[in-house]
Computed example of a mutant assay.
Amino acid sequence: MAENILTSEVLEPYAQALMSLGQSNDLVDRFGEDMANILDTLNASADLKTLVASPLAKADVKKAVLDQVFGDAIHPFTRNFLMLLVDRRRVMFLEGICQQYQKLLRKLKQAVLAEVTSTVELSDDQKNAIRSKVIAMTNANSVDIETKIDPELIGGVIIKVGSQVIDASLRGQLRRITLRLTSAT
């Protein structure tokens, strides 16, 4: 419940405002790239994530660090957006706003997100095969793939698209066999 309130009251309006700015300036895709870049950077740096989320860090320090980290790698409008988030004390929600923007972008482009969990990093051919299967399943125009590594799967993959889950992992197959064997006795 709290997550829905956060999404509707904070994340959605900022993501929607950025989307509107992108649409009016034909920068929707560029902002999408910027959001992906920001998310990747936040996920790669626990220190940056901590600084952004910290209510104790001063606004000018946050602005200086964000400007130094992202600089010319992001569009000037995106940089101004980050500074606005700092000024309005909403930068702690940066990760969620970026994710919400990406959801809006996928909806606009009739794309879906496939969350793929595997035991090892997937090759480009494997990602393309998954992409093709998900497109056939959902009739989407395109598929964004987000990968996670889980060595406990033993082998195979788990693909989650929206509320649908396809468990093609060895762990899942063993669980199904166990259920069949126990229900047969």
Rank of each mutant, 00 (worst) to 15 (best):
P13I: 01
N80W: 02
Q16I: 00
D29H: 15
L56Y: 07
A2T: 06
D29R: 13
I166Y: 11
A129V: 04
Q68W: 05
S123W: 14
I158C: 03
L11C: 02
V91C: 03
K109R: 15
T78Y: 06
N43K: 13
S45L: 11
I177V: 10
V161A: 03
L181D: 00
V61K: 04
K103V: 13
L108Q: 14
L104P: 06
A129E: 11
A17C: 06
D60I: 09
K62N: 03
Y14L: 05
G32S: 12
A168F: 04
P151K: 01
A17P: 08
M1A: 06
I159S: 00
I38G: 08
S45E: 11
S169C: 06
Y14W: 09
F81V: 01
R79T: 05
I158P: 01
D125T: 15
E146F: 13
A57E: 08
S24M: 12
I149T: 04
D26P: 02
L18Q: 01
S54H: 06
S24E: 15
L179E: 15
L6R: 09
K62I: 06
N139K: 12
D125G: 14
V116Q: 06
N139V: 00
G22L: 09
R30I: 12
L179N: 11
R88W: 02
K63M: 05
E95T: 08
A111F: 14
L6G: 00
F93H: 15
A53H: 09
K127P: 06
A168I: 01
